[in-house]
Design a protein around this nucleic acid. Structure first.
Lengths: 195, 195
DNA sequence: CTCAACTATCTATCTCCATAGATAGTGTTC
DNA sequence: GAACACTATCTATGGAGATAGATAGTTGAG
């Protein structure tokens, strides 16, 4: 159900087409939330049916057209309600740690490769998030600039502060995961002294 | 697909019924992997069909019976193959951080409550994982004891070391999440001085 | 002009998972 | 011996998400 709110969050800044939203999920926002277009388009139609959005045909070139959605008052309310409700935390399902718990089954080199993959994955995320923080600090994010422009001055501080806070949390998490996997590599070396 | 390997991991220690496995997922193992019984029973049947397990009717009381599964050679191989392959990391989907990024939409008290819920959730996990580490150190986990008993002495060190390593990673993560949410609470206080 | 890359949207299928509820036997307790 | 909690297994339904592929128009590069 969070996809719906991720979409509302983006549409609260400005009207967008399904493709615009898909692009956002592929790039910047995609590092907090991801969705394929095949999930986005039907969800937008459902949201329109539910009165959260309104779609409008827009000309695109000579013969082309696209459907641009803007958030309705009901959509804004639904998003605000979601923001004011407390999130349910769901059960754990963590393949990386599941595997780590049984690493004695793997060949040492496979175990090391698993740890390196963990590091690579989180290092890539880390880089993305550090970029995001830099963008926020330097004001070079067009999306954030547009959002800020639509807000009264008094609210801009909060908006940037919460964004920075979010990405800093993700940075800490990535750093922690990398440190853990590095300990893993050290442990493997220790347990398999021969190689 | 990880459910299958979580089941193989447990069944590599000793034969179990679907209900035994369900109980494991509800308690200890459930903090790394969770699955409802309605997912476990069909998966066990599929695994038997695929030759990874063999099921056997076992008497239970006078008229009752249950189906106990034991892992086959092919099942052991499949698990070992999985352990020797490198995990694919899937895209992010993180409702807590999605919400955090838009916390300016929430009332201050709702924002605080969200952070407190985050702390509660991870504090509960933290406690579980600290218990697990304690169990490993003191050798009071029956499941681990049985696993160790089935292993040559030379392998026991690795098994306990990787388990401890796994849980310590989860502990660090939980601590990090709690620290982050506490920073969130401080930030909210700072941004909303009135209360 | 043409080709490739991109924009734009849609459908189909499959797995995974959550939720709910049905059924039936066991073991303990009052 | 009735009630209750627990063991044991199963089915149904629906949402979420991954993957793949179809269709069609646009734009820019060579």
């Amino acid at each position: 159900m969070s996809l719906r709110y991720a979409l509302l969050a983006l549409l609260s800044v400005e009207p967008m087409t399904g493709y615009d939203l898909y692009k956002e999920f592929e790039s910047s926002v995609g590092h907090v939330w991801h969705a394929p277009d095949s999930q986005i388009y039907p969800e937008l139609r459902r949201m329109e049916k539910d009165g959260l959005l309104e779609g409008e045909e827009v000309a695109w070139g000579q013969r082309g057209k696209k459907r641009q959605y803007h958030i309705t008052r009901a959509g804004t309310e639904a998003f605000r309600d979601w923001m004011n409700s407390t999130l349910e935390y769901s059960r754990e399902r963590d393949p990386a740690h599941l595997k780590a718990a049984y690493l004695e089954w793997a060949k040492p080199e496979a175990a090391r490769e698993q740890m390196r993959a963990h590091i690579r994955h989180h290092a890539a995320q880390l880089e993305q998030w550090r970029d995001k923080v830099r963008e926020i600090e330097e004001g070079t994010s067009p999306m954030l600039a547009r959002r800020l422009a639509s807000l009264p001055t008094s609210d801009r501080e909060k908006t940037t502060a919460f964004k920075k806070f979010t990405y800093q949390g993700l940075i800490s998490r990535a750093e922690q995961e990398i440190a853990w996997a590095q300990q893993g590599l050290a442990l493997i070396d220790e347990l398999y002294p021969g190689g």
